[in-house]
Amino acid sequence: MTDPTLAMASDYAVWASTAVLALALLAFCAHLAVTGAAPATAAGAPVTAAAAPSRRWGVVGLQLTWLATFLVVGGTALRALAVTRAPLGNMYEFALMTASFALVIYSVWSLRKERLWLGAFVVLPVLLIVGAARLGWYTEASQLMPALKNVWLVIHVTIATLSVGLFTIGAALATAYLLRDRAEGRGEVRGWLAALPGAQALERMTYGIHVFAFPLWTFAVISGAIWAEQAWGRYWGWDPKETWSFVIWVVYAAYLHARATTGWTTRRSTWIAIAGFVCVVLNFTAVNLLMTGLHSYSGVST
């Protein structure tokens, strides 16, 4: 039932993607350094070709990112073909899905708008995810355990990985905003920070991503409850994974609230979004690997 050739092809694609991602990261960093060091141009003002800093490194990074997207999505798809099921059965596969979503979102986004400055912020976490998955959470291609054979698995995990992909980009933007905002506050926007858009624009983008991701996460939690009802006989049981999903939901709700609350600066609100992402990371790592619960699907032997 499991095709070893396809499974191996998938592994090669994933390995190759880590190398390409690393190169893309270097190129994007070079891009930030070059554009940041260029003489300041009025934000958004049209710049003449001669004065414009070279975008060459950024374009190289973007093209490498497209290649990496192709490799990660391809690796994920090959694994799905190898096991003839959705690639959502264990931690390694969740990580691949999350990385795929983050890369696809960024790639599509960069086709529509100039987003070279964002590249490094997306490629770095994705590289960490794929690297950790490959080195730490690798699981052999195989069939599913019965509790995972359900349409709700596909719905629940797809949406959950999609929202985690979005939260990842959201956290990257939030970090960029916090750094840039601090520099602007001190009046010393220098170096690569000068290559970023203004703090307010970054903050608006951060919020925009979370506005997408939060309802998706809400849906992921609801669909998880529907599935738990069918598989375990109750829709909510405060299993560690359920607890953490709830905590993540509440923290991001608090972020949206904080942003709408007078007396809370956008800086402080954004820190709540970062706290939410810390919970997402813990939910994916510590809860999967260290805590005993019903969600023991990591597939990683401990």
């Binding site: 607890t243 509440v250 923290v251 608090a254 609230h257 809370w264 809860v287």
Partner: peptide, 15 residues
């Protein structure tokens, strides 16, 4: 907002 954050923290020991 404070209660939301408190709820998140309070739910953690259970895991």
């Amino acid at each position: 907002l404070a209660l939301l954050l408190l709820l998140a923290v309070a739910a953690l020991p259970g895991s």
